[in-house]
Each structure stands twice: as C-alpha cells, then as structure tokens.
Write a protein that binds this DNA or RNA. Structure first.
Lengths: 215, 215
DNA sequence: CTAAAAAATGAATCATGATTCACTTCTTGT
DNA sequence: ACAAGAAGTGAATCATGATTCATTTTTTAG
C-alpha cells in the first residue's frame, strides 16, 4: 500500500480551491456569470481546464458557490448595520442602504450579477434565497420602525424590494456612465430618495386612485 | 424578361415581416431575448429557418427591431400621461408610473428583457437610448413639479432612474411569486412608494451623513 | 406555356464553450 | 527504488444554436 491523503495534500487542495474561487470572483466582477468561461478561468488560475472539474462538478455548481460567497459577505455587512440597537430604525436603515449602495458602486458587475443577470436554474434558487434574506432584513427593520411609530405603516415587504430596486437601478442601471457620477453624492442622494419613500406619510391615494382610474 | 416585383408580392412580404415581428414579440414575453431561438421562431411562424434571414440579417438585428417596437409602444403611453396639461405634475407622474407598473405586471418577462436582460452590443445601444428617453420623460416631469414648487428640489435624473428601478424590482424582481400578489394593490403601493420618495421634503441629510460616516 | 428572377426551404455547416477521459505526473508508505 | 493511488493535464468530444447555401417552389411577363 502507498498513497494516503496527508495534511500537506489536504492543504494544497484547499489552497487550490481558494485560488479558483477568488479568481472566479474577480472574473465575475469583470464579465458576470455568463461571461465567466471555464477555460479562461483555468488559464487565469494557472491550471488545466480539467482540474476545475476535480473541484467543481460543473460550471453551474461553481456559480452557485460564487453566488453564496458574494452574497454572504454583502449580507453580513448589511445585517450588522440593521441589527445595531444604538440608533433609530431610520438611521440603521440608512446606514445599511449606504453600505449596499457603496458595494454596488464599487463592484457594479457583481451587483448586477447577483441582482439581475439571468442564470442557470440552480443559481436562480440561490438568488431567490438571497433576495428573501435581503427582503427579510430590510422588512424587519422597517417593521421595527413602524412599531415604534417612527415610520408610517406600510407594506414592508414591498417597500424593502423597492428600496433595493431603486438603489440598484439608480446606481448600476446605466453602467455606461458610472464613471461620470460623483460616487459619494450618488450614494447619498439615492439613500435619501429611499428614506423619503419609507418615511413620508402616505401619498394621497385618493389622487392616485383617480389618476389611475380615469384612463 | 419576366419577374418584376408587384404590389401583391410587396404586400405578402410586408405581411410576413409583421408575422415574424409579432410572433417574436410574443416569444420575447415568454423567454426573453436569449431564449428566443431562430429555429423555434421560424417554426412558430410556419416558415423555414432560412426565411427569417431574408427579412433580418441576423438575430441581433431582429432583437434590435423588437426592442424598438416594444419600447415605442410603452414610451408612447407613458409620454401621453406625462404630457397632459390638465393635471398637476404629481398626478401626471403617478398616472405614468401606474401605466409603467401595469405593463410590467402584464408582461413581466418583456419588462425584464427591456430593462435588465443582458443582450448583444447592438441591442445594448437600443437599451441605452430607451433608458435615456425614459429618464428624460420622468426627469422633465419632475422638474416641472419642482419649478411650480409642487415638488421639492432634487436630482431629477437620479430620481427618475430610482423610480423606474423601484417599480421594476418591486413588481418583476420576484418573478417566481408574481401570481401571489394582488396586482392592483401592488401597483398602487409601489406607485405610492415612488410618489412619497419624490414628494417628501428632503430626508435629514445630517443624520445620513453621520450614520454613513461612523462606519 | 416558358424562361427569368426572386422567394422559400431546411439540411449541412460553423462557432462557441462546457465537459470528458486516456494519459502523465506527483505523493506516499514500504 | 517501487507500486498504488491520486491529482493534474489538455486535446478531443458534445451540445447548443446561429448562419449559410444549393436546391426547390413561386411568381411574372411575354
């Protein structure tokens, strides 16, 4: 008998695994999921194409892992802001939105990949999970604010999705001209937009109903 | 000499052209741009694959035409609401947002295809054009409201993008559970969200600045 | 009816990119 | 040094789907 897995090997495999993941995350932010080609990734890692398949059974599995990595980091940060107990609900939400917005600006393609890029079914499942966690986080925070009377009553689940959508579209929608924006100002403005939306007293729905109806 | 293009033929060709476009629009709303396969489309039109190529030089060209068609219809409707002079700026904007929201709910995949689906470069160009027209429309309406004092001063271009993003994400983001929503209520709620965002007096940016800064 | 010209056809070809696998190189315990 | 068992390799294979083009069908004018 001869070969037996030793810790040296185990570590090397772990290192290779990390190498693959980190290079893949970098590529994800350059070309999105669909542009992430296995051959190119292997090349970038200094590995053969086939080697990737010793670590991940398919591109879809790799993408799912990437998705989980990218979102865990992001959600952990947002969660941290939202779970603080020192500030008011509004302040917590504003801080969390800023974090989200800044990350979106810093890594626009990743943000787009996580939020909107069409992906394989298995990855879609991961995305729904991600959206749900996100929606839950913000929805809870909004509900806390509503409970204390700090915010007006509202459909917290819809509001939380609208928050994410507003920021995502405002910041990453026009990928073409990201560089033209003053990033700090853009973050501040879009967070303010969101805070107004959830803080304001309900917009007269009588007007709304009539203006909807008469067409 | 013999064959000469006659009006009979010209009309038939026009009819075929329309057939292709309308079936393609239908498919677009089922599977998006990337799922739109030339062979399947031809089959659906009762034509041979090759015939499509007598009418459109490539799938990319076809998609560009589809994009223009879909957006022209949508933008015309929104424009109509925004250009009315009888209502207040807020009412005009609310009506236009409702129209946008309803269309998004009725044709969610098309909405997603127009707004966010990754597409070929030529189609991206069409999309930027579309976004710009949209942003212009809403931005103008917001500025009118600001000019009359009806709305507070704001970055109209950012606001208009955030409006579209908020509604899009709130309504089409969770494609999976669209059917669970009460459509009418969802439209009304997300429009209200938007109206609050642009109508409210600026959210205290002092709070914002501090909560951003201390992390 | 016939020939010329165009339109339609759809099987074959191309292009792209994921996945496989026979083979080579390493590692390890004796 | 050796044999067993992995790990790594990358060219070949597959799958998908757009595009082409030689052939067939239509249309038209004389």
């Amino acid at each position: 008998m001869a070969y037996r897995e030793t810790s040296k090997i185990r570590e090397r495999k772990q290192a290779t695994h990390s190498t693959i993941v980190s290079h893949a995350l970098a590529m994800l932010n350059e070309v999105g999921f669909s542009g992430l080609q296995m051959a190119a990734l292997a090349n970038r890692c200094g590995l053969a194409t086939g080697t990737l398949y010793r670590y991940f059974p398919s591109k879809e599995d790799l993408c799912t892992v990437l998705f989980a990595h990218a979102t865990d980091i992001e959600i952990a940060q947002v969660e941290q802001h939202l779970s603080s107990t020192t500030d008011t609900a509004s302040e917590r939400i504003a801080a969390a939105l800023s974090t989200f917005a800044k990350r979106a600006l810093r890594a626009p393609i990743t943000a787009w990949a996580l939020i909107a890029e069409p992906v394989a079914p298995a990855v879609i499942a991961a995305r729904l999970h991600y959206r749900e966690r996100y929606a839950q986080l913000f929805a809870n925070a909004i509900e806390q604010g509503v409970a204390t009377g700090e915010l007006p009553a509202q459909d917290s689940s819809l509001s939380s999705r609208a928050l994410v959508g507003a920021i995502a579209e405002a910041l990453i929608g026009p990928l073409a001209k990201t560089e033209q924006l003053d990033a700090h100002a853009a973050v501040q403005t879009s967070v303010a937009f969101c805070m107004q939306a959830i803080s304001a007293r309900p917009w007269p729905s009588a007007h709304l109903a009539s203006s909807i109806t008469h067409k």
